[in-house]
Computed example of a mutant assay.
Amino acid sequence: MLTVWGRATSSNVQAVMWTIAELGLAHTRHDLGLAYGGLDTPEYRSMNPNGLVPTVQDGEGPPMWESAAIVRYLAATYGDEGFWPRDPAARVQLDMWAEWIKTTFAPHFGGRVFWPLMGRPAGGPDAFPAAVEGLKPLARMLSERIGAGPYLAGEKLSFADMIIGAQLYRYYTLDFDRADTPALDAYYARLSARPAYRQHAMVSYETLRIAT
């Protein structure tokens, strides 16, 4: 039995919960973070010294944190060959895109586009338009990589889709000028048809909005 600590509105929690659902793993989840609090208690900090979400424990095993690391653990432990390729040469072709999402796409989109639209501006008056334009080549790059898909590894959903796809609900439902990316659009439509994605990734973010 997996135990997950973290609020459903966290995109990092969403990646983990979507993975758990796709793999059909028994679990319980506890809301922590933001309005729920609980991240600064000694008990939680003893599991996750960063005081962030998610934290996951598999049975009586040691706590795990960092969402992408957790996704990889779940995929390696419970996923089949399609979800977690055993051949390192095949797996790295997926993993480098999963890393790119975490290090390049998500920081740009989250910090410079998503949070400003939620009422937390970053930089001066020209910062947001520049951020939107800077996101376009990244979205085109991902769209080209997806191609005909249907998923990042081809016919089968994989761990890398968990990390990539968890960003896309916000990307496609926020009001800003997106790049023309037909392959990425089709990929998002395929993900949106999956019940586990709808349940765990397509989560309203309105409670994160700051009233102005």
Results as ranks from 00 to 15, higher is better:
Gly61Gln: 13
Thr19Asn: 08
Trp97Gly: 06
Asp161Lys: 09
Ile20Pro: 03
Ala127Val: 10
Pro49Ser: 14
Ser11Ile: 12
Met17Gly: 00
Tyr44Pro: 08
Met47Thr: 06
Gln57Tyr: 01
Val53Gly: 02
Met17Glu: 06
Val13Met: 04
Ser11Gln: 14
Glu206Arg: 08
Asp175Tyr: 12
Gly59Ser: 02
Thr212Arg: 09
Leu25Gly: 12
Ala127Gln: 08
Ile163Arg: 02
Ser192Phe: 05
Ala189Tyr: 10
Pro107Ala: 14
Ala76His: 11
Leu34Gly: 05
Thr207Lys: 04
Pro62Ser: 08
Trp5Tyr: 15
Trp18His: 06
Pro85Ser: 01
Thr3Tyr: 01
Ala186Glu: 13
Ala8Val: 11
Tyr151Thr: 09
Ile164Gly: 03
Tyr187Trp: 06
Met141Thr: 09
Trp65Ser: 12
Gly165Glu: 11
Tyr169Lys: 05
Tyr44Thr: 04
Leu2Asp: 03
Met64Ala: 10
Arg198Phe: 01
Phe128Asn: 03
Tyr187Ala: 08
Ile20Thr: 04
Phe176Pro: 05
Gly134Asn: 12
Ala189Ser: 14
Ala21Glu: 14
Pro49Lys: 04
Gly110His: 12
Pro107Arg: 11
Thr9Met: 07
Ala193Phe: 00
Tyr172Gln: 13
Thr207Phe: 00
Gly119Met: 13
Leu174Thr: 13
Met162Leu: 13
Asp180Asn: 13
Met141Asp: 00
Tyr169Pro: 08
Arg7Thr: 13
Arg45Met: 10
Ala196Arg: 01
Leu208Asp: 00
Met202Ser: 01
